[in-house]
């Protein structure tokens, strides 16, 4: 068989790029399947302030660009392709992509997670028409307009703060009566005069002809439904959704062990239940999904993959 990589890394977020860096530096022949874009979640994050050393110009895109450069420098190959199916049963693992088939002595799954949707009527139809999951992409459309941010975690509150640079008013819509975000982030939000809160509330319907014109807000305590319409002069408002993530693991179903929500189960060395197949980053069952834990996972997975190859592929 020609062109067998030591490790095929599926995904090019912080976990995949960190694995690529460590694998490349260990002189492993490494390939990264980067899908349609590199960087993963942070590629669309406005600010990454909690990754050590990431202080100046600490946006997601700049951090991503530096990670890519570093992985490239150590010789990891990258290809714009996504895994469509995998066969992990053999000694050499086979990954079939949209553009080609790739063979690896080991595999690191680092496909991460993708933003979850609200799941209400109108949401899908009006995505890119006022409904957004990417503040850095779409914020400037809402210059001087009103914006609703759905969610109460770190991402929701941080992106709400970012959106105040553009929007006239930002209302955080949260299904509970208190935020889940870190206290320091909460404080910034509470002190921001442009941010208001709508507690115990969820959006149940989004309406509009071609663009968002109104939305129905359901109060979970009083049971009341309120439809809010865009101001006549505005014509529209924004709905930014940050209500958590779903794992991107469908391709690996029945190939490796997962929990009931689709996150991949590993041991502390990032081994899945299949020998030679590792998982790293947000795709794993873990308690803290952050850039730093993803990068750490990637490093461990690459080192363990190297050990595995040395043991299992003696020539």
């Amino acid at each position: 068989m020609e062109n067998v990589y030591d490790v095929v890394i599926i995904g090019a977020g912080p976990a995949g790029l960190s694995a690529a860096l460590y694998a490349g530096r260990a002189k492993m022949k490494a390939l990264v399947l980067e899908g349609s874009k590199v960087g993963g979640q942070i590629a669309i994050t406005s600010e990454v302030a909690n990754y050590p050393g990431s202080i100046h110009d600490a946006t997601g895109p700049t951090l991503t660009a530096r990670m890519v450069e570093q992985a490239d420098e150590f010789g990891a190959e990258r290809v714009k392709d996504s895994a469509v199916s995998v066969d992990f049963t053999g000694n050499v693992k086979v990954i079939t992509g949209e553009k080609g088939t790739y063979h690896g002595k080991s595999v690191i799954i680092a496909t991460g997670a993708t933003p979850r949707i609200i799941g209400c009527p109108g949401e899908v139809e009006l995505t890119g028409k006022g409904v957004s999951y990417c503040a850095t992409c779409d914020a400037d459309f809402f210059q001087d307009l009103e914006v609703f941010v759905v969610g109460g975690g770190d991402t929701a509150v941080e992106e709400a703060i970012y959106l105040t640079k553009f929007a006239r008013k930002v209302t955080i819509v949260h299904r509970r009566d208190e935020l889940r975000a870190a206290k320091s982030i909460q404080e910034m939000a509470f002190n921001n005069p442009k941010i208001e809160f709508m507690w115990n509330s969820v959006i149940t319907d989004i309406k509009g002809e071609g663009i968002v014109e109104s939305a129905v807000f359901h109060n979970r305590v009083t049971g009341e439904d309120t439809e809010i319409f865009a101001h006549e002069d505005d014509g529209t408002f924004g709905i930014f959704v940050f209500v958590g993530y779903d794992p991107v693991s469908k391709v690996f179903k029945d190939c490796v062990d997962m929990d009931e929500t689709g996150y991949i189960v590993t041991d502390p060395q990032m081994n899945t239940n299949v020998t030679g197949v590792f998982a790293a980053g947000d795709i794993r069952v873990k308690t803290l999904r952050q850039v730093i834990t993803a990068a750490a996972d990637g490093a461990i997975a690459a080192v363990e993959a190297e050990k595995y190859i040395v043991h299992s592929f003696k020539e």
Binding site: K37, V38, A43, I44, C134, T136, C137, D138, A139
Partner: peptide, 8 residues
């Protein structure tokens, strides 16, 4: 500001 746009 749109990174996905640049990637596309």
């Amino acid at each position: 500001g749109c990174e996905p746009c640049k990637a596309l």
